[in-house]
Computed example of a mutant assay.
Amino acid sequence: MFRALVRMSENAAKRLKTESGVRIGTHNGHFHADEALAVYMLRQLPTYAGASLVRTRDPAQLAECHTVVDVGGEYDASRNRYDHHQRTFDTTFPGRPTKLSSAGLVYLHFGRALVAQELGQPEDSEDVGMLWNKVYESFVEAMDAHDNGISSVDPDALKAAGLEKRFSSGGFTLGAMVSRLNPAWNDPMPADPAEAQAAEDARFESASARIGEEFSRGLNFYTKAWLPARAIVKAAYDKRLEYDSEGRIMVLDAQSVPWKEHLYALEEQDAAAAGVEGDDSKGKILYVLYREKPVPDAKWRIQAVPVTDTSFQSRKALPEPWRGARDEELDKVAGVSPGGVFVHMSGFIGGHKTFEGAMEMAVKACAF
Score class of each variant (00 low, 15 high):
S245C: 06
G218F: 13
H262G: 01
T308R: 15
A36T: 15
N182S: 11
V153L: 14
R248V: 03
L174D: 13
S138T: 15
A176I: 04
G72K: 02
P190L: 10
G95F: 03
K14W: 04
T91W: 06
Y48Q: 07
A271I: 02
L174W: 14
N148E: 03
E141I: 03
V251P: 00
K353Q: 15
F342G: 00
S337H: 05
E320I: 09
D331M: 06
L174C: 06
D253M: 07
P294G: 08
P338E: 06
E214Y: 14
V343M: 09
L45G: 02
F342D: 00
L105A: 11
L42K: 07
S138D: 14
H109A: 00
H30Q: 10
E195P: 06
D270K: 14
V39Y: 01
M1A: 15
H352N: 09
P319I: 00
H66E: 09
V336D: 10
S125T: 02
E213C: 10
A38G: 10
W300K: 00
I249Q: 04
C65E: 08
Q117C: 07
N182E: 13
K316F: 08
Q197V: 07
G175F: 04
G21P: 02
Q303H: 12
A207P: 02
I302E: 10
K316C: 09
Q255I: 07
F167T: 01
I349K: 02
R248Q: 09
P294D: 07
G347K: 12
A36H: 06
E126I: 07
R315H: 02
F312S: 13
V22I: 15
R166Q: 09
V276W: 01
Y75N: 14
F110H: 15
A304T: 04
A161W: 03
S314Y: 00
N186K: 10
R326P: 00
I349R: 01
T173N: 02
D238C: 05
A304K: 05
D244L: 08
G350S: 13
V128L: 08
E214M: 12
R79V: 10
G50V: 04
F89H: 10
C65F: 11
V233Q: 01
P94C: 03
N28T: 03
D76R: 15
A160F: 08
E320K: 14
R23K: 15
V140F: 09
